[in-house]
Design a protein around this nucleic acid. Structure first.
Length: 569
RNA sequence: UGGGGUGUCGUCAAGUGGCAAGACACGGGUUUUUGGAGCCCGCAUUCGGAGGUUCGAAUCCUCCCACCCCAGCCA
């Protein structure tokens, strides 16, 4: 395959669907669904599933439903429903009129359960939870039949009705499918399908005190909605026989096909809702939308774009093998998007004062700067230049190492869009010896950054005019964890030991060019030579601009330094 | 020592009996008023291992090994 005609090859799920279409299965319809439980925030792993399900529907003129799998009122909340809808929308997907809730099917589901009982395929079991567990057997030993397994149909019907009526305490009875207590697949050992939970539901209120279990609900919800391909993650493979069993017993007209794929893992972070909740709960991060979190809201606040995330989800592919994608790929995707779309500005993170000795005290020039060299259509802006400037501390070395191209005593560099300057002296703090100011001269002939004599300089620095610049706070983020696999030490809570203590660095005396005065929350910029930053949506205000660093620019100099460190000389 | 899955470059991932795509990462070069971006080049004689079938095997067969998931009245 040549580079030109290369295209992402179909994944195994798309292959299955293409095959189904070719034999006119489901009369050519493709209906998928994204079925979150509203018990937490969506993360990038969910984005993979969203892109897959909505993507497949789009590609095949089908539809993708958004269905909340809200069968467990003890864990769910309306708050999550709103955040999930917002995140799916933000990613750029549209479920149209296909917004559903499993709880809307509770009446039908109840009727289906009654049918199952009537067919002798379900029974009310009155064993205690402990006993049920004991009767289930183990991985290597078969289970034992519950003594209630042979309860007459009439009695089951009566009991189930009374469960529904609220006559029994939680846990005293349960409705079970009658399948096979000796099955090597534990899911088939008479799984629970309805439990008593005397608790009000965020959508159905107090109408019910029995709630259906996932295995019973999910397949029937898919069937009710006419889903053709029910795509889920690998851990449900063992549930597929049960998914099919329920639909077969009930003789439904629509029997969707369950297909499983591997969930996403990303290096240097975690994807488990439970563990993410612990990070939030323990204060390791500031919230679900902390820019270090792999949640959709965290990534959004960090400055990631829907395009970047969708591109990422396309590139990682879909397969059945457990894998961990390098977070560098995600970073690559956002850089690529932002390179094309983010306006450039100059901002100095760690200011070093520079006085241009031969520049007139009261003069201010307005210099033209290009907004995005990748896109001339984005135009240009004016940046003020004056006698006193700030440059980046990193951009000056009193004693420059080999391959260091930036400013040093006696050295000449270019100030972007401005002039060539040469360092003639430096001022040190008498106590600490720290360099607190540079004295430079400029060459008036080099206005705009080019010299008539074509002489070269090896570096171009970003800068701001001290008097005109705005103070800003900038938050620098790094990987949340030190280890590519934070779960390395399996013993559960120890993932916290791998937290990166420096995942957040807050800089409070940054200076940015005045054009940012009215930057709106959420807007994205490239700080030239630094990286991509976005105006924080929570903390930025008229009084103080606050920026989050989305991702750094690729940094060749950092690599050179690292290489020199690793093998000196 | 039950059942269900999976093993192709550092990381993802195509490949379905005809002689190992692509991406990220990495290394080098070119270009450059961002050490950015772009462009070019390099990067698996070999597909978990061992046998076998075949003119020919990552693809078929046999055995073995490793890893993941399952014993919630969670999803």
């Amino acid at each position: 395959m040549t580079k030109k005609d290369s295209h992402p090859s179909f994944d195994f799920i798309r292959n299955i669907i293409a095959e189904d279409l070719s034999i006119n299965k489901n009369e050519g319809r493709v209906v998928t669904r994204f079925p979150p439980e509203p018990n937490g925030y969506l993360h990038i792993g969910h984005a993979k599933s969203i892109c897959l399900n909505f993507g497949i529907a789009e590609e095949n003129n089908g539809v993708c439903h958004l269905r909340f799998d809200d069968t467990n009122p003890s864990k769910e909340d309306i708050e999550y429903i709103e955040s999930i809808k917002a995140d799916v929308k933000w990613l750029g997907f549209d479920w149209g009129k296909h917004l559903y809730y499993a709880s809307d099917y509770f009446d039908q589901l109840y009727e289906y359960a009654v049918q199952l009982i009537k067919k002798g395929k379900a029974y009310v079991c009155s064993l205690s939870p402990e006993k049920i567990k004991e009767y289930r057997g183990t991985l290597t030993e078969p289970g034992k039949d519950s003594p209630y397994r042979s309860r007459p149909v009439e009695e089951n019907l009566d009991l189930f009705e009374r469960m529904r009526a609220g006559e029994f305490e939680d846990g005293s009875h349960i409705l079970r499918a009658k399948i096979d207590m000796a099955s090597p697949n534990l899911n088939m050992r008479d799984p629970a399908i309805y439990r008593i939970r005397r608790m009000s539901h965020h959508r159905t209120g107090d109408k019910w005190c029995v709630y259906p279990m996932y295995d019973f609900t999910h397949c029937l919800s898919d069937s009710i909605e006419g889903v053709t391909h029910s795509i889920c993650t690998l851990e449900f493979q063992d549930h597929r026989p049960l998914y099919d069993w329920v639909l077969d017993q009930l003789n439904v007209k629509c029997h969707p096909q369950q297909i499983e794929f591997a969930r996403l893992n990303l290096s240097y972070t975690l994807m488990s809702k439970r563990k993410l909740a612990k990070l939030v709960g323990s204060g390791a991060v500031l919230g679900w939308d902390d820019p270090r979190m792999p949640t959709i809201c965290g990534l959004r606040r960090r400055g990631y774009t829907p395009n970047a995330i969708r591109d990422f989800c396309e590139r990682i592919g879909v397969a059945k093998r457990d894998s961990t994608v390098d977070v560098a790929l995600l970073e690559h995707c956002v850089r690529q998007d932002l390179n094309k779309h983010a306006p450039r500005i100059m901002g100095v993170l760690r200011p070093l004062r520079v006085v241009i000795e031969n520049y007139p005290e009261d003069q201010v020039e307005s210099l033209e700067a290009i907004n995005n060299p990748e896109d001339p259509g984005m135009g240009s802006r004016k940046v003020p230049f004056s006698r006193v400037l700030y440059i980046e501390q990193e951009d000056f070395r009193e004693d420059p190492p080999k391959k260091y191209f930036r400013l040093a005593p006696g050295r000449e560099v270019r100030l972007r869009y401005a002039y060539y300057i040469k360092c003639v002296d430096m001022v040190k703090d008498e106590q600490t010896g720290e360099i607190i100011e540079l004295r430079c001269t400029y060459d008036p002939e080099t206005r705009g950054g080019g010299s008539p004599d074509k002489r070269k300089v090896k570096a171009t620095l970003h800068w701001v005019s001290a008097a005109h610049s705005l103070r800003a706070e900038v938050r620098l983020y790094d990987h949340l964890f030190l280890k590519a696999n934070p779960d390395e030490l399996k013993n559960d809570d120890n993932f916290k030991a791998n937290l990166n203590p420096n995942s957040l660095e807050t800089l409070t005396s940054c200076r940015v060019e005045p054009s940012l005065a009215n930057a709106s929350p959420g807007s994205l910029y490239q700080f030239e030579r630094q990286g991509y930053f976005c105006v924080d949506t929570q903390d930025s205000s008229d009084k103080l601009l606050v920026f989050n660093r989305t991702v750094t620019l690729r940094d060749t100099w950092a690599k050179i330094q690292k290489a020199m460190k690793n093998k000196p000389r």
